[in-house]
């Protein structure tokens, strides 16, 4: 039989490769589990769990992923270094998410101190009235789109017509100097 090399040295039998072969039944079992979990996801969404729904949906999705990665992608039986690469990726995604959420959840506090109205109003934090133009405020209450046969509903009404960031930018009026936020996009 053909000879091969290990680290540059000739060696016999190196062309043989040994792979872990999973039984077909195991694949079918994983498939069944994935189907059941998919049905569960749909069921949970019908149950109106409120704020817990997202967490439940994500846990179910994570379990499904574990099945796909562990068995279909064979990571459970693969070189552990591949697991290292995969979980390393997850770690960095975790850092990415964590840092961003810390930013989002503390932004209101910072903006309140800085007198940035646009963000604070979004979060329902009490702030002193800001000098915001009112001229185009009426526009904000118009329904966004009148669609035939009710296919697309109008845009949700803006709760607080007082500060419309879009209108603000349209007027081109100078914002408070302390405002650290970038100019909002008008989209027009």
């Amino acid at each position: 039989m053909a000879k091969g090399y290990i680290r540059g040295r000739e060696a016999a039998g190196v062309h043989e490769t040994h792979h872990h072969v999973m039984p077909v039944k195991a694949y079918l079992g994983v498939f069944g589990a994935l189907m059941v979990l998919t049905a569960l996801t749909v069921l949970v969404s019908e149950m109106n769990l409120g704020s817990a729904a997202l967490a439940v949906a994500m846990v179910v999705a994570a379990i499904k992923s574990a099945f796909v990665i562990g068995f279909f992608m064979h990571l459970k039986y693969d070189t552990r270094f591949h697991s290292f690469v995969f979980f390393g990726t997850l770690l960095f995604i975790g850092i990415f998410f964590l840092m961003t959420f810390i930013d989002i959840n503390t932004r209101a506090l910072v903006n309140k101190d800085w007198g940035n109205t646009a963000w604070v109003l979004d979060r329902g934090v009490e702030i002193p009235p800001a000098p915001v133009p009112h001229e185009e405020g009426g526009e904000a209450h118009e329904p966004s789109a009148e669609v035939k046969d009710g296919e697309a509903a109008p845009a949700p009404e803006v709760k607080d017509g007082e500060a419309k960031p879009a209108a603000e930018a349209k007027d081109g009026e100078a914002k408070p100097a302390a405002d650290p936020a970038p100019a909002p996009e008008t989209g027009r």
Partner: peptide, 25 residues
């Protein structure tokens, strides 16, 4: 049904989005 991103939202259905740019569909 005009359920599209950005400016294209409902544009050809009802002449575009007039309001609710922030947090709009």
């Amino acid at each position: 049904h005009g359920l599209l991103p950005g400016d294209a939202f409902a544009e050809h259905v009802a002449g575009g989005v007039q309001a609710g740019w922030y947090g709009g569909p």
